[in-house]
Amino acid sequence: MKILLAEDETDLANAIKALLIHSGYSVDLAEDGQYAVDFAAQNGYDAMVFDIMMPRKDGLEALREIRAAGDTTPVIMLTAKSEIEDRITGLDSGADDYLTKPFAMAELLARLRAMTRRARPEAASVITYANIEVDPSSSELRAVNSISLAFKELKLLELLVKAEGKVITTEEIYDRIWQDDPDTSTKIVLMYISYLKNKLRSVGASCVITGSPESGYTLTEG
């Protein structure tokens, strides 16, 4: 696993880096916030550890820029101050966790493990149902044949599979998948149900989506 460490205090940076490498991580060290932004733009990381107080660009600013670029990598903030305000600003800027200096190295490692554990399995697990396989990492639907799914089609199919035969209403589907799209109406659900029905058929799936906009939808075998 790869970690981006942004810390300007050389001694502390080297100590953390050595510990992380010793624990089996590979580490890129950024000496200030600007370098951190540059590193994050160039490479993919499993987690990031940012100091708040840094020259050129502080940790909060760097984090905000990285999040604005669409990067959702888990981030732990290191803060010298233990004031509540700082922690709140850090979390609101997109941090997933924080540690107050001085901290125990063992705690940093434990928090990294917890964070990467949360981030991992969802991204990788292939969903199976009847004769279909849905691979979220490649957005691929496979049965006799294979086809790509659009992001929202993938989310919709995941939702239907996880419902395990229970009916999901149009409103539930809309709230779960289109909650961030104010410009759409629940009619979009029927459109995506239709796409998925035809894509399931085109790969020779042995399961079908049944239902209507009024009654809701369910995925069943046969």
Partner: peptide, 20 residues
């Protein structure tokens, strides 16, 4: 192979829209 599956996906989507 990946692009073939993406094009197939678009073909099915266009057919769906046409039916609608």
């Amino acid at each position: 192979k990946r692009v073939a599956d993406e094009l197939a996906s678009c073909d099915v989507s266009m057919q769906t829209i046409r039916d609608m």
